[in-house]
Design a protein around this nucleic acid. Structure first.
Lengths: 340, 340
DNA sequence: GCAAAATCTGTAATCGATTACATAATCATT
DNA sequence: AATGATTATGTAATCGATTACAGATTTTGC
């Protein structure tokens, strides 16, 4: 009944068997005879037994938890990915530890593994410093880390990501279809892989559509944030000529840009069309509602968690350079319009 | 050097002392002589020893983690609170487990304590069902749970919350100051404590300013979400007369409302002023930028974590019905304007 | 310099589950 | 019914840290 502090010994006593049998019944039922099994389960029920994770973890030399490393807990982009991760991991007995890379010291990160607080890690932050990652990989076996969303090009950890190039390409294609040929691009953080991929997709599309890239219209946002977009808007305004359409590397950038444009009397989409990337929740309700490239964030989370779980349980060894690409989707809304 | 799997035994051997001394040096240095201490620390350094948490937790009968229960991981409102919580707990050796109430079954929640995966819990979800909470309180000692942001009126757990009534009052006062007297209110989820408090603040202010409340303008949003706001807008539009100002129980509601108004040609703040509650990041960049009541989310998180930590470590017993009220702040932006 | 008090350190039990190995029970075969 | 093969269960060591208790060492007071 009480359940308070019942141990496996207690259950064994009640069921009239040894602790070994109780343990087997619970974790490897095939090994025990039906009658015994029933007796044990009855005893478990009666005593309200719950396993002691600390003891189990100590014995099995595991942590029972996986760590999720976010670049920024404050960015709404990540919450749905977390949902996806959670939904997978809670079906197993793994807990989810979440930590914010911004505040963390590198030794802390490695520490999670060294003192067995985490069995694996999902890295959502491609900006993780080289040194930290190197140290991490020394301590953490290959099969215990995966990248999701972002990644580091020169590592061989598995990576789950959206089709960023394809998305950027779709964005440009959409703008071209609307008649635009004066197209700008606000990039994300310098050096970020997503920035690079989306830029590559942008360039490929421009080449394909035979449009010259005007380097004045290629603006370095510096980060995936509202303020980065606002800052980019100010830079655009200083120019002699504005593009007629702008592809932003993130929804937050796009919204910051549109907002700052609005403050200067530049109207989207009348004066300029803007397309974002991500499709965060607010995009649909922004004014104007934001045309964007939707990332399937739930699926990114689910795949990352599944990949890690499988590889932890040894069910499938991750291939080196194993990349899972998740499709993106153009969502047409009101921030883009035909060239008038 | 390696650090891989060095145990306290190894350190003891290297330092030429017993494991007891190593343990004491690390967790209770006052008990050991300076010379010995130095030798032990040198050995720790040399071997790269990291404590094994599972072993420590087992022996100390603790989990080394606290659980944060969110109503909805997808809501950006919570991320900063998490930052606050994290910042406090990582300074101690506690890990942060995060879980989403929406998907969780009640037994799972209690399970975190029964199998010693969590030492304490921060509940950010006042909508937690009565049954679950009751069960939780039976299992979890009083000093191991705190409410943050939301709470249940009929429990005596400590609670850290914003001054919701005061905030609502400020919101109305702001509107009245701008000359408005036809004031509406979009409520949050039915039965939610925040909804009630903010409604009470609204009513108190209206009474104080001697304005009758028009029940047509009191609209039940149903949840704290963009769609709730949009739905409320549609209800307003059906009415014979619109209020000149609307206080929304959350920023998301306000933005949904404004967005839907815009789709119907109703302009904010020209046709109607709108004020929100929370001051989430996007509020400043929404078009129009949103006048709102700012909650100090970081501080809410910090206080919640600090309160729980103190009470876990026995440093301060939480008083029953211990409520810490955090001040809110009116942030004037462009979604409210003088009555024309 | 010596006894008593105070401080430091070591021995070994303990936390609760898992599992290698040994033993017991059951089954299959002739 | 006897044998060997198979399956089920029990015994006890183990994971790595903490801590009660005892024993050793140092300090204090005179």
């Amino acid at each position: 009944m009480s359940g308070k502090g019942t141990t496996i010994q207690e259950v064994a006593r009640v069921a009239g068997v040894s602790t070994a049998t109780v343990s087997r019944t619970l974790s490897n039922p095939d090994l025990v005879r039906d009658g015994t099994k029933k007796a044990v389960l009855a005893a478990v029920e009666k005593t309200g037994y719950r396993i002691n994770r600390a003891a189990q973890n100590l014995r099995k030399q595991q942590a029972g938890a996986i760590l999720v490393l976010l670049p920024d807990l404050g960015n709404p982009f990540f919450s749905q990915i977390l949902s996806g991760i959670e939904s997978v991991l809670t079906t197993s007995d793994l807990s989810v530890l979440i930590t914010d890379a911004s505040g963390i010291k590198q030794s802390q990160l490695v520490g999670y593994f060294q003192d067995t607080r985490a069995d694996g890690i999902i890295i959502l932050d491609g900006a993780i410093p080289h040194g930290v990652l190197k140290e991490l990989i020394e301590v953490v076996p290959d099969n215990r880390a995966v990248f999701a969303c972002e990644w580091k090009p020169d590592t061989k950890l598995p990576s789950i990501r959206s089709d960023n190039q394809g998305g950027a390409h779709q964005a440009v294609a959409h703008l071209v279809e609307l008649g635009h040929r004066k197209i700008g691009h606000v990039l994300g953080p310098r050096g970020n892989v997503l920035t690079k991929e989306r830029l590559t997709g942008f360039e490929r599309a421009m080449l394909e559509f035979d449009i010259d890239i005007n380097s004045n219209w290629l603006i370095d946002g510096g980060e995936f944030s509202l303020e980065a977009g606002a800052q980019a808007a100010r830079q655009f305004i200083e120019l002699d000529e504005l593009p007629t359409a702008i592809f932003c590397a993130a929804d937050l950038i796009a919204m910051g840009l549109i907002s700052e444009f609005a403050k200067h009397g530049i109207s989207v989409p009348n004066d300029v069309s803007v397309i974002g990337f991500d499709d965060i929740a607010i995009a649909y309700r922004f004014i104007p509602s934001l045309t964007t490239i939707r990332q399937n964030r739930i699926q990114l989370g689910v795949l990352a968690a599944t990949t890690l779980m499988n590889s932890l349980s040894g069910r499938s060894m991750p291939a080196e350079n194993n990349v899972q690409l998740v499709d993106v989707l153009l969502v047409e809304r009101e921030s883009t319009a035909p060239l008038s």
